[in-house]
Write a protein that binds this DNA or RNA. Structure first.
Lengths: 280, 280
DNA sequence: AGTTTGTCACCTAGGTGGCAAAGT
DNA sequence: ACTTTGCCACCTAGGTGACAAACT
């Protein structure tokens, strides 16, 4: 039960950490386990079920009081949803690429004085490989998934820290980078291009007890935001995604044509979205 | 004995921390306690005693084994000495200014598995206020020191961390900023302009014992590098200092005139330094 | 007269998508 | 045919000293 699943090494802004004996994780990524009723390719927006306002913890056994009351709120939720309706794509590069939108959360209900580690991992949303049909502007299934790259986990660089510290302000995973390099030694998250993924967020109570391994399962709580799922790509496929990135990411401002779209407008009428395509 | 001296609050890259009960410091800055036989204004370079290669811990009582063996090595020592021979000046601004050279150290002899906090503070080198005589290119005593600003301490943002983590690579205090704003609420170090200061570096073992306050004095070790002392200024006084900053600080590259001084040359013949001036 | 402040041009450092070229 | 790579111009973000103006 003691994190056999996230093998390889651990990714953090502070450098690579040895697998921490005190941290424990839910089983991760190696096997295919769809977490949510993900409707993909993204259907007509109006028809899709709306994601919940606050993440649902993936329910499990009894939890330590230090984590049982923890609640997590996704920041930039409207932006995430805008992307998700179009079918979010995230660039992966050899050197590692940040996510946009950034994964940011507001945390509530921690024990102020207890130590926590915060981390993320990515699970495949299905067992398929995709390709994008430009003529129909739709994603198509292109076969079974490629072999899964080494599973990794990204610790927030400030881990471990007191609950008070984590709750003081929004927690941002802006040091997290995605790569398609199977041999990456920068501790980045390795993903298969043209595959679908679901980011997961884990709150781990750092148990001071000597036999803390025993309580591994009780000491963490995981959160999944369906609206953050995405397709990993080496180049954007859906032109609408490109345009929304340019419109909303400050670093892409150089590609904006005018001041008219100088800032992301969350309630822009999103007409003419690609229709659901046939899965072969 | 439990850090009464560094009052106010604590400065760290992670934000402002409540005074940590578990950390303990040597008495700091409020009272005037010259630490070293500092020869200032800087006399003829050849005549000055050379600073030691490795910092001398400020000797004290018995130490916890976790800190007793810790050794610290100053990085960019040659550059620090070059500045020190001219009489180092550090800019202070309302918004806060980084130090250049940066205070960076290599650490040896920590317990790999123990937790440590790393921090810095600044003690007045004397009880005087200075002014710079441009005609003679010399510093002169201009009276007694102004009232000491609130003493502060800068925790390295990665604190606390395991010994292994600290020793893995050079530790850099590049988030530390100096200000002259007595009302600063960014947690920066507050200094009096036209006064002389000695940076100090402290290694604090985070004692897991419940009654760790009892062992406060045993759990830290302090290091002082005489070559890092400086005068706080709001604008550079000695034109040679300005030129050396421009020549050696990458961020000031815009002020270099040619490629000839494109990089700092540590063994440049330092002729024509300002002579020792009369203290009134 | 001496010291401080604010603004500026000019850097470093690094995050964007575009695009042509190279892989496969 | 489809996907990946490398390089680029163009941004954000922020660290420099110069300098004129303001302060005291």
């Amino acid at each position: 039960e003691l994190l056999p699943s996230p093998p390889g090494f651990l990714s953090t802004g502070r450098g690579v950490l040895a697998p921490p004996e005190t941290y424990t994780l839910p089983a991760a990524s190696s096997s295919w386990e769809p977490r949510l009723g993900s409707s993909f390719p993204p259907g007509p927006a109006a028809g899709s079920p709306r994601p919940q306002a606050v993440a649902e913890p993936t329910g499990q056994g009894p939890k330590n009081p230090c984590v049982s009351g923890v609640t997590v709120q996704l920041e930039m939720k409207a932006l995430w949803e805008e992307f998700n309706q179009l079918g979010t794509e995230m660039i992966v590069t050899k050197a590692g690429r940040r996510m946009f939108p950034n994964f940011q959360v507001k945390i509530l209900g921690m024990d102020t004085l207890a130590d926590y580690a915060l981390l993320m991992d990515f699970v495949p949303l299905d067992n398929k490989r995709y390709r994008y049909a430009f003529h129909s502007s739709a994603w198509l299934v292109a076969g079974k998934a490629d072999p899964a790259p080494p599973g990794r986990v990204h610790f927030h660089p400030d881990s471990p820290a007191k609950g008070a510290q984590w709750m003081r302000q929004i927690v941002s995973f802006d040091k997290l980078k995605l790569t398609n390099n199977l041999l990456d030694d920068n501790g980045h998250i390795i993903l298969n291009s043209m595959h679908r993924y679901q980011p997961r967020f884990h709150v781990v109570f750092v148990d001071p007890r000597k036999d803390s391994e025993r309580y591994a399962q009780e000491n963490f709580k995981s959160f999944v935001f369906a609206e953050t799922q995405f397709t990993a790509v080496t180049a954007y496929q859906n032109h609408r995604i490109t345009q929304l990135k340019i419109a909303s990411n400050p670093f892409a401002k150089g590609f904006r044509e005018s001041d008219l779209d100088a800032w992301y407008c969350p309630l822009l009428p999103a007409q003419g979205r690609p229709q659901a395509s046939a899965r072969t």
